[in-house]
Amino acid sequence: MVKAAADRVAELEEREQLTDEQEKELAALRPKAQQWQKHKERDANRYRVGKAAADRVAELEELEELEEREQLTEGQAAELTVLRPKAQQWQNIRNIPRSISGWERLLPIVLRSWRSWRSGSS
């Protein structure tokens, strides 16, 4: 329904002349079209964040392999030190049961981040 509204808004906006009825329809459909656009942007952002996290995990695994072979540079060792706690946090997020609602799943993470921020550590 919302996508159909967005499609109809795009169709009406392409026209040079609109009847009064079409202008009213356009005004009524615009909020739904905006909702659709926000939904698309949110999904795209979620994908980017997930992709970045997956890339970082792959990078972590690569660094851990280098560590096992004792081939880490100082910079890579420092990066590994930073990535390990984040990887643990990502793992903790994945281990939260799906039966728990969104906010309930995020609450422990938000509280942990807030406490970390309040204490001045990163």
Rank of each mutant, 00 (worst) to 15 (best):
E13D: 07
L72F: 07
A5I: 10
V49T: 09
D7H: 02
L72A: 02
E41R: 13
I96P: 00
L60W: 08
A78E: 03
W117Q: 08
R115D: 03
A54E: 13
L60M: 10
L12I: 09
E74S: 03
A87L: 00
Y47G: 00
K86G: 06
S116N: 15
V2Y: 07
E74C: 04
P108W: 01
Q34K: 14
R105P: 04
G50Y: 12
Q88C: 00
E13L: 11
E62L: 13
R48S: 13
S119F: 02
P108L: 05
A33V: 04
V110E: 08
L72Q: 01
R42N: 08
D20N: 15
V110S: 06
P31W: 02
L63F: 10
E74V: 15
E11I: 03
L12N: 00
T81P: 01
R118F: 04
S101R: 10
P31Q: 04
L63A: 09
L80H: 00
L63S: 03
L106Y: 04
H39A: 05
G75V: 13
K40Y: 13
E16K: 14
A78M: 02
E11Y: 03
A4T: 13
D20R: 15
W36H: 12
Q37Y: 13
Q34N: 15
R56I: 13
A6R: 03
Q17I: 14
E70Q: 14
Q17T: 10
R98F: 09
K24Q: 14
L29V: 03
S113Q: 07
I93T: 00
S122I: 02
K38E: 14
Q88G: 02
P31V: 14
A78I: 09
W103K: 06
E104R: 07
V49Y: 05
A87M: 06
V110R: 02
E59G: 00
A78V: 03
A58Y: 06
L106R: 08
K3I: 07
G102Y: 10
L18S: 10
A52H: 13
R94Y: 04
I96N: 00
E25A: 10
V9L: 11
Q88Y: 06
E61C: 05
R15V: 01
H39D: 05
D43R: 11
K3N: 12
A44Y: 12
L66V: 06
N92F: 07
L18A: 03
V2S: 11
E64P: 10
V57E: 08
A28S: 13
A5D: 11
W117P: 00
H39L: 15
K32N: 11
E65M: 04
L72W: 11
E16R: 04
S116A: 09
L107R: 02
Q17Y: 10
G75Y: 04
S99P: 00
L63C: 10
S119W: 05
V82I: 11
A10P: 04
M1H: 09
